[in-house]
Nucleic acid binder design. Structure first.
Lengths: 336, 336
DNA sequence: TTGTAGGCGTTATCAA
DNA sequence: TTGATAACGCCTACAA
């Protein structure tokens, strides 16, 4: 059907082996021969059959990406970073969105394994031990991005979520806030949200605020959930002067929700987000938030993975990228 | 190395052919045998080698997606729609972002062809004839999503961009606006922006507005470009009362840009976007915009592609999904 | 520097 | 209902 290495060989008057050598830039082929072969390739419009190559070499140049809820601007940037690095190293991306469900993740893991991906990038909020075990048992090189993985075999690259959250509460405390509300990610998100909760706790401890007295509500990283949660916090705890949301979209939702209840931001209430998605500078009031670079994170995760695949020493297993508190208009001193 | 069909066959005491039949749910295998085989599969933790299967069957269950600038909320939703339908039909997605550059697109096309993808979904704003020719010459089933393709062999699914743009201008005209500004996509985007420009023209004609007198500026679908373009339009043409942006992000940027110049929206200036991304309801003022469903578009594009791959009659080649003008807070009657 | 031949793991054909 | 066998297209010893 399609034109194969044999057809090229016939036309060029050489053996298939020689054609294969030309394709793979083997140095031990006469320049003259190579030219003949390349002409034949052009003339026949030959396209290599990757499946055959993968079958033979056992190396697919394919990176599997498993993500949870990729219609999230931060994760999308991360994916772009992964892609940029992958492209530079000659990898293609094969991709599945698990929506954070373990079952889906395991299913994709199987599929990607069957396609013999050379490596795995995992971008999920909740990291299940089940998933870790499966990955390890299959022996596929994997790097987690954005979430810290509490396992000393599996590398991950993220921001120091604990420290970042601590920075937020410290900042708000220094402004004079004493009554806080928290809108975290889903409870299944033990990783990212879990780390951030730790940071919140640690700052509270430092400032002798009772963690258990602080209302913590769950959101699902959507505008709507932020709005709903903020309204609940404010009606249940009218004395609240600052809300920390674990994601910019929820924070923007929270601003709208609070405004619907008649609050002015930041005069009556400070709201802080997390991620610094592009939008956050363009909403009104502009959002105070923790900046982290999804693109860099994705890029570096893929660079790291590439080193593992190449058998190089990738350096330390857990890497923190810098974060930065961006103070904008949605936060200020508490009302007196 | 890895466990193969042969190992399973040995353990189960049958031939490789039988194992293959069990894997593929062939009906002509005794239930008893199938059970034995399945046990062996479980025991050995056998995972099929897809490359071998693809090589043999010439069918990869892989859909190639070429997108331009996927860190765009609308396109991201579209991709999710594609994925949902692909999953339902047993396809996996392999994915490349061309950033709208023809060279990249052709390169990805080659790569995807070499991986023997069963079909192609193309989500690009600019559609180059070169690309169309290559796709046709390779004979890979392809569906374009979001952009109308002016070619009577290649199917596409989109919104009626011309009609939608006309709706916007009609609406603004009816409100009393006479001095317009337009922020279009890049000039290389002949498709989507081109179609919308046609609609604008057609409404202008209907209302006897001179198209050539209307300032049209180019943006790149970013917040920033919308802000910059709006400021230029307003300082060059202070009499402008309404700006139509070909994308919500640019529209939101335009709102901020105009505000920086001291305009109140919508009292002094109406701004209308296109897409209705989730965010548009949450900005302030909430954005008047054309709603189109990226998810549906992606889903239906993939459904369409699946039919072509299956050899079914997919129905008409060009499909328009419904659009709707969502009137929110960013538009109103012009200042008197 | 080039060619020959065998095998990667499946599936499809044919025969039993 | 099952098994033997060949073939898919490529790469890689090994031999020439």
């Amino acid at each position: 059907m399609a034109v194969t290495i044999k057809d090229v060989a016939n036309l060029a008057g050489v053996s298939p082996a020689t054609v294969s050598r030309v394709i793979n830039n083997s140095s031990l082929v006469k320049e003259e021969t190579a030219e003949k072969v390349n002409e034949a390739i052009d003339k026949l419009n030959y396209q290599i059959n990757e499946s055959a190559r993968v079958l033979r070499t056992n190396c697919s140049s394919l990176i599997g990406v498993i993500g949870a809820g990729m219609d999230n601007p931060f994760l999308m940037k991360l994916l772009k970073g992964v892609e940029a690095s992958a492209k530079a190293h000659g990898f293609n991306l094969i991709f599945g969105d698990s929506e954070g469900e373990l079952e889906q993740e395991l299913k994709y893991l199987n599929i990607l394994n069957q396609r013999r991906v050379d490596g795995l990038i995992i971008i999920t909020a909740s990291i299940y031990n089940n998933l870790l075990d499966e990955i390890k048992s299959k022996g596929i090189p994997a790097v987690f991005a954005s979430g810290y993985v509490n396992d000393n075999e599996i590398p991950c690259i993220s921001v120091n979520n604990t420290r970042a959250a601590e920075d937020v509460i410290d900042y708000l405390y220094d402004l004079g806030h004493r009554k806080f509300g928290i809108i975290r990610g889903t409870y299944s998100d033990l990783v990212t949200s879990g780390e951030r909760i730790k940071g919140v706790k640690s700052s509270f401890q430092k400032h002798q605020i009772d963690f258990n007295s602080v209302p913590i509500y769950e959101g699902d990283f959507s505008f709507e959930s932020g709005s709903v949660a903020a309204k609940k916090i404010l009606s249940d705890n009218p004395e609240t002067t600052a809300i920390f949301c674990f994601d910019d979209k929820m924070a923007i939702g929270a601003i709208r929700g609070a405004e619907e209840l008649g609050y002015n931001i930041p005069e009556d209430l400070s709201i802080v987000g997390f991620d610094d998605i592009e939008l956050s500078s363009y909403v009104k009031p502009a959002l105070t938030t923790i900046h982290q670079s999804g693109y860099d994170m994705g890029y570096q995760a893929m660079e790291f993975l590439n080193k593992i695949i190449d058998g190089e020493d990738p350096g330390k297993l857990k890497e923190f990228l810098p974060h930065e508190l961006k103070i904008r208009e949605s936060s200020g001193t508490p009302p007196t």
